[in-house]
């Protein structure tokens, strides 16, 4: 079992010796049962770190912020940041390394293995609790969840509470790390794309109306984009202005920028936004599920990304985020790549 004590010890050492700028980890959240991202700068704050099945967030997203922060500083502190990663999150680090968005020396990776478990799905838990407030969620020795509520403890089988992505997880333990806590054990995985079966069985017309209904709810708060470690572009098609603009950008460049998508949260615009995002994540999404979790309107965005993950696997035998030395799917060409789309 992964132990937070292992990480704490290392984190304290790193901070004391000044080997990292700060550590991105999980701490207790103030809002209910869910952990929250925690940024630790001082060794004495390390004891606030927690590791439990509510550590759902993909903290790799904050490496994007760190890069932006460094870009704004005149003399940036070049030391690495320490970061707690689960298996899925570690694969996001791999993609950022593949894409040369970050350098291996930018991060000190504190890996935790989910082993046979994973993280809880907040919606599933809320449904189970039916109004009761959870205080704590733990895993017992039999790999069951133990939920402490206001009026006592409830035990639940892993499958009842695990996030969908955890049920389809291909890497329960980090694939890249400087320190690993926990065993490299996996959940048995029969159907890696099982969650897609239902939607794939629908006719094109039914799928289309399914997505119209889902995406019509979108209010374009961009939480999906904001929560995603891969959505790091300074120039995004949905923004009103290119954030990469500087004093040197010419008036022509700014004037000629095409507004592909209107700001209005209308069916057509929402559809284009989500499809553009999905396509840009093809071969890059590591299925951390943060986009779907962050969405306040419960749009099942994971389906889109999972489908493209499946396409990448079936067409190119490509699995995202396992090898930092491998070229990224979209930026490489191999002779054996399928050609039959050329007609």
């Amino acid at each position: 079992m992964a132990k937070i004590e292992d990480l704490k010890e290392e984190a304290k050492k790193l901070l004391r010796e000044g080997k990292v700028k700060y550590i991105i980890g999980y701490g207790a959240g103030s809002n209910g049962w869910l952990a929250a991202p925690l940024f630790i700068k001082k060794p004495e704050d390390v004891d606030k770190l927690v590791w439990d099945p509510t550590c759902v967030h993909n903290l790799v997203r904050f490496l994007v912020d760190e890069k932006r922060r460094k870009a704004r500083q005149k003399q940036p502190d070049k030391r690495p940041v320490g970061i707690m990663v689960k298996g899925c999150d570690s694969r996001a680090v791999v993609v950022l390394l593949q894409e040369k968005f970050i350098d291996r020396s930018d991060v000190y990776i504190l890996g935790v293995s989910c082993e046979k478990m994973g993280v809880v799905d907040d919606a599933k838990l809320a449904k189970k609790l039916a109004g009761k407030k959870a205080k704590r969620v733990e895993v017992d020795a039999q790999d069951r969840f133990v939920v402490t509520t206001e009026d006592g403890k409830i035990e639940m089988a892993a499958e009842e509470l695990l996030a969908e992505r955890c049920l389809e997880c291909k890497a329960n333990f980090p694939v890249i790390y400087d320190l690993l806590s926990g065993e490299k054990t996996k959940r048995p995985l029969d159907k890696p794309f099982g969650s897609l079966e239902k939607i794939e069985s629908l006719s094109a017309a039914d799928r289309s109306s399914f997505w119209k209904e889902q995406l019509d709810r979108c209010i374009r708060c961009y939480a999906c984009r904001s929560a995603c470690p891969m959505c790091y572009c300074d120039e995004c098609v949905v923004d009103s202005i290119n954030l990469a603009v500087t004093a040197d950008t010419t008036a022509d460049e700014k004037a000629q920028r095409i507004h592909w998508i209107q700001r209005s949260a209308e069916s057509s615009e929402n559809l284009v936004y989500h499809l553009v995002r999905a396509i840009h994540l093809a071969g890059r999404c590591i299925d951390c599920g943060e986009c779907e979790r962050a969405c306040p309107l419960d749009i099942p965005l994971r389906f889109l990304n999972k489908k493209l993950e499946k396409e990448a696997k079936e067409l190119f035998g490509y699995e995202v985020g396992f090898d930092p030395a491998l070229p990224a799917l979209i930026s490489c060409f191999r002779d054996e790549d399928p050609q039959d789309f050329i007609r």
Partner: peptide, 16 residues
């Protein structure tokens, strides 16, 4: 700065 470290810069808090 401290309190906004974990902010994702999404629009949830304001749109809703």
């Amino acid at each position: 700065d401290e309190e906004s470290m974990s902010c994702l810069r999404c629009g949830i808090c304001t749109y809703l």
